[in-house]
Design a protein around this nucleic acid. Structure first.
Length: 205
DNA sequence: CACCAGGTTGACC
DNA sequence: GGTCAACATGGT
């Protein structure tokens, strides 16, 4: 089964996911930091708090009091380091306007994002794909686990190359595929449950 | 009570 | 190069 077949099967089984759940590109950036090692429901609460405080803009986030920020995002865990990371990326996006930032090449942007403390490969690629609409395939824990079941092993770079070379560089496709993988992983292929083989999806539908 | 969640970092080999 | 604990809350 090739990548496109896998995509179609997931889509057919799970339906469209329509990621990333955010109202603005900068909200994607904020969510990308907050969701590190954390369930999305807890992130949603924090984003809600930030929205109430009118803090979902780079300038507002840069200027907010650190302790206040920490208390608002407490539900996401690791709240002290995440507060610091949020202000770091907010500073970057305050200096570099989001829409016009997209004119730069994907690789240049990626390196700039990776240079920020708290932004690793997955977070950078999530921002590139879902906030800046760049064709970067996001690899996460579910992707690694599912690929392993499929007999595809390797680290982040290897898997990313595998997806990107097997698929057309289509941003909506990349967005939806990653979303489907996460949803599939949550339901059928996580720490507690690994029904050895992924993509027997018909049986489970 | 133990384990896990859409990672990243710095220390240590 | 790779491995490992730390980071911390909320849900099963």
């Amino acid at each position: 089964m090739n990548m496109i077949d896998i995509y179609n099967k997931l889509l057919e089984t799970l339906g469209e996911q329509k990621w990333w759940p955010a109202k603005t590109p900068f909200e994607v950036v904020v969510g990308a930091i907050l969701t590190q090692r954390t369930k999305w429901e807890n992130v949603a609460k924090a984003i809600d708090e930030l929205e109430k405080g009118d803090l979902l803009s780079p300038d507002a986030l840069v200027n907010v009091n650190r302790n206040k920020l920490e208390s608002l995002i407490k539900s996401t865990g690791f709240y002290k380091q995440k507060a610091e990371r949020l202000q770091t990326v907010a500073q970057y996006f305050a200096k570099n306007d989001l829409p016009s930032l997209g004119e730069n090449s994907t690789e240049v942007l990626r390196n700039e994002l990776l240079a920020l403390n708290g932004v690793g490969k997955e977070t950078a690629d999530s921002m590139l794909l879902y906030a800046l609409n760049k064709p970067k395939f996001v690899i996460d824990a579910y992707t690694v686990r599912i690929c392993k079941c499929l007999g595809i092993s390797g680290g982040y770079d290897h898997l990313q190359e595998k997806f990107e070379s097997a698929l057309p560089k289509d941003v909506p496709l990349f967005k939806e595929f990653h979303a489907l993988i996460v949803e599939y992983g949550k339901r059928y292929c996580n720490r507690k449950r690994c029904n050895e083989c992924v993509l027997d999806v018909k049986k489970r539908a």
